[in-house]
């Protein structure tokens, strides 16, 4: 046993509990990246604001204080928490319908105020929890239960690019789009999430990380094909990379 060393273990910030997420869903990965980042930053008392969407139960999987927001209102709720508890790390974890449809106003204004919070935006191009309806980020031609012939841009417009939108505002200090469809990208995603949390810890201001994610169940694909679809279809439309880092 003497030569063995632990090279990987479950993050102490994660609960000993299986998630309810479907096979191939990347929410669990994003949860893990947040938990690891908090561990590494020595943060034990973060507060996560859960969205309405598949991740509504995020606080059941992480050893954090959790506040569940109404649909789309997470940035407003996070604002309220952070303005009282300015020394706590406050994370707004949101999906695409939550952040870009019903909660677009809250999203833009929290960013525009430069709230010292971290927004983790999980973009899987569909409404997962409600059973696969069209999202603001659903790809052109993508079939969903409310765009059964595929998303038609003439009728419903084109997908909204969140990072680019937020990048028009002055106050955010950090904006990055990452993906978690393979190992290399997961490592980059981790780096971005950790940076976004560090920014908050250091009081720098509003940080936004968009994570391209999968929803094999509602996309009607196997996990492997879902990762391929993300890479082939989503990344060309949602280019990965850093949009803003005030230190650069």
């Amino acid at each position: 046993m003497s030569n063995e060393e632990i090279v990987y273990k479950k993050s102490p910030s994660m609960m000993e509990r299986e998630t309810h997420y479907c096979p191939g869903c990347t929410h669990g990965v994003v949860h893990k990246l947040i938990a690891e980042s908090l561990d590494e930053l020595g943060v034990e008392d973060a507060i996560v604001v859960a969205p309405v969407g598949c991740a509504v139960l995020i606080y059941d999987y992480m050893k954090l204080d959790g506040v569940e927001a109404a649909h789309g209102r997470a940035p407003a709720v996070a604002t309220g928490i952070k303005r009282v508890l300015s020394d706590k790390i406050v994370i707004s974890y949101q999906g695409d319908g939550d952040l870009l449809a019903i909660g677009l106003g809250e999203t833009i204004h929290a960013a525009n105020r430069g709230e010292n919070i971290t927004v983790i935006f999980v973009n899987n191009a569909i409404y997962g929890m409600t059973g696969g309806q069209m999202a603001p980020t659903t790809m052109p031609g993508q079939k969903t239960t409310t765009s059964q012939s595929g998303r038609m841009a003439d009728d419903v417009g084109l997908p909204i690019r969140a990072c680019e939108l937020i990048n028009t505002l002055e106050k955010p200090v950090y904006i990055e789009r990452v993906s978690c469809h393979n190992g290399a990208n997961i490592l980059k995603a981790k780096k971005a999430i950790k940076k976004a949390l560090l920014n908050q810890k250091e009081g720098k201001g509003y940080s936004f990380v968009e994570v391209l994610a999968t929803c094999p169940t509602n996309w009607g694909l196997t996990p492997k094909k879902a990762y391929d679809w993300l890479e082939d279809t989503m990344i060309p439309y949602y280019p990965l990379g850093n949009f803003r880092d005030q230190e650069v």
Binding site: R73, A76, R83, G105
Partner: peptide, 26 residues
């Protein structure tokens, strides 16, 4: 204290939700 002119009534009550969840009077 803190005053925020929110972007909407909806945002305002949800900011109250956040502040109140910390136990602060809002």
């Amino acid at each position: 204290g803190t005053f925020i002119q929110a972007e909407s009534e909806t945002a305002a009550i949800n900011m109250v939700f956040g502040a109140s969840s910390t136990g602060a009077r809002s």
